[in-house]
Structure formats: structure tokens, C-alpha cells
Computed example of a mutant assay.
Amino acid sequence: MTESIPGVILAGGLATRMGGGDKGLREVAGERLIDQVISRLSAQCGPLALNANGDPARFDDLGLPVLPDSISDFPGPLAGVLAGLDWASEIGATHIVSAAADTPFFPEDLVSRLWEARGEEGICLAASVGKGGRVFRQPTFGLWPVALRDDLRQALEGGLRKVVLWTDAHHAGQAVFESTPFDPFFNINTPDDIDEAKRLISGEVK
């Protein structure tokens, strides 16, 4: 089942802590982040698309559909999820799975685990175990049902921006991943994070 679920890579943010631009096009250990994410996600699901705003031509070499937000003013990752759900509806899919373009180490069993842990309305968020056993939800990594896209659109148009407020209202499931030897949802927000990612790739983990 999960092999046919479309995947949407979320790259619609402003990357202000990186000085702007597309974080996914930055290189870590000689390979762009976006290429690493595509490789890891494509092995787990069906067709892929990229949620990004601005000129789509900068992603031409990827050969993926580029889906801009349909809600203005960069309202956050839920707008990218909505763009993905609209695309999935057009191709006849019932769900999508989302992944962030700046998180190259996410689990290789992400999609199957999300599917297994989905809630009663078909939503599931990934989560990881932090220090002291505390569980942290990862709102850019989730399973989303196409049937709720109009509900999500209405929520966004009404001003909702926080992912978990919407997912909690729809009884989302949660797939919890261990952070051993490091958090698989480590994401790259700053130049220092690029250096840290290089250490993780080389095996010099925290």
C-alpha cells in the first residue's frame, strides 16, 4: 500500500536563518540536500512532487512537479500540505506523505510506520524521542488524507497556522522514532547545522 502513496517534499519556507534562498539546494558532503531527500523518500512511496514558491525553473533538473502554495503570505507547512493534497486529488490518490527538504536523515521506514500508526481520520505525524525520554512531534513529516483537504483549506483561510492544532482536532496518530545514535529528524537551519550534518555523515555523531 505505502509504495503507491505520493510524497510531497516541503521546500516552501523562507530560510531566513540561512540568509534566504533554497535550503534544499545547499550541499552537504558534496550532495544537495534536496537530492538526498528525494533518494530517501522515493524508495518508500509513489510519485513525488515538490512544494516551493517563486520561479519553478530553478528546480527543472529534478524532473518533479513543483506545487506553489495556494494560500498567500507564506502561512507555513500546512500550506504545502494543502498544495500536495490538491495535486494528489488530481492524480487519484487518497493520501500523501510529507517530508522536509532540509532533513536528510529521516527514517528509511518513515512511510510504512506513518501508515501503521495513522489515526481514525487518516492523519499521522512523526515524532522522535529526545533527552529524558520526552517525545517531540515533527510536524513537517506526516501522512495526510485527501478527504480532509477542504477542511484544511478552510482552516488556513481562517488564519490557522500551527500544524498540531489542526492535527489534534482530527485525532492524528503518532509514529515515534528513536533518536539513536542521533535524532533522525535533525534539520538544517543555519550554516552551523551544515557543519553538524557533515559530521553526522562522516560518523562523528553527537
Results as ranks from 00 to 15, higher is better:
Val8Trp: 05
Leu10Lys: 00
Ala11Val: 04
Gly12Ala: 04
Gly13Glu: 13
Gly13Val: 06
Leu14Met: 12
Gly20Phe: 03
Gly20Val: 05
Asp22Gly: 02
Asp22Cys: 03
Lys23Phe: 07
Lys23Leu: 15
Lys23Arg: 11
Val28Asn: 02
Ala29Trp: 00
Gly30Glu: 07
Arg32Thr: 08
Asp35Lys: 02
Val37Trp: 03
Ser42His: 01
Cys45Glu: 10
Ala49His: 04
Leu50Asp: 09
Asn51Glu: 13
Asn51Leu: 10
Asn53Val: 11
Pro56Met: 05
Ala57Met: 06
Arg58Ala: 11
Asp60Tyr: 04
Asp61Gly: 05
Leu64Asn: 06
Pro65Ser: 07
Leu67Val: 06
Asp69Ala: 06
Ile71Ala: 12
Asp73Cys: 03
Asp73Tyr: 05
Asp73Pro: 02
Phe74Ser: 15
Pro75Tyr: 12
Pro77Ala: 13
Gly80Cys: 02
Leu85Thr: 11
Asp86Phe: 01
Ala88Trp: 13
Ala93Ile: 03
Ile96Pro: 00
Ile96His: 01
Val97Arg: 02
Ala99Pro: 00
Ala100Lys: 10
Asp102Leu: 03
Phe105Ile: 14
Pro107Gln: 08
Leu110Gly: 08
Leu114Asp: 15
Trp115Asn: 09
Trp115Arg: 03
Glu120Phe: 00
Gly122Asp: 12
Gly122Asn: 07
Cys124Ala: 09
Cys124Met: 08
Leu125Cys: 11
Ala127Glu: 14
Val135Asn: 14
Gln138Val: 13
Pro139Arg: 06
Thr140Ser: 15
Leu143Lys: 07
Trp144Glu: 15
Gly159Phe: 00
Trp166Asn: 07
Thr167Ile: 05
Ala169Asn: 13
Ala172Cys: 10
Gly173Trp: 08
Ala175Gln: 04
Ala175Pro: 03
Val176Cys: 12
Val176His: 06
Phe177Ala: 11
Glu178Pro: 00
Pro181Ser: 08
Phe182Leu: 08
Asp183Asn: 05
Pro184Trp: 06
Asn187Gly: 03
Asn189Cys: 13
Pro191Ser: 14
Pro191Asp: 14
Asp193His: 00
Asp193Thr: 00
Ala197Asn: 00
Arg199Trp: 02
Val205Lys: 10
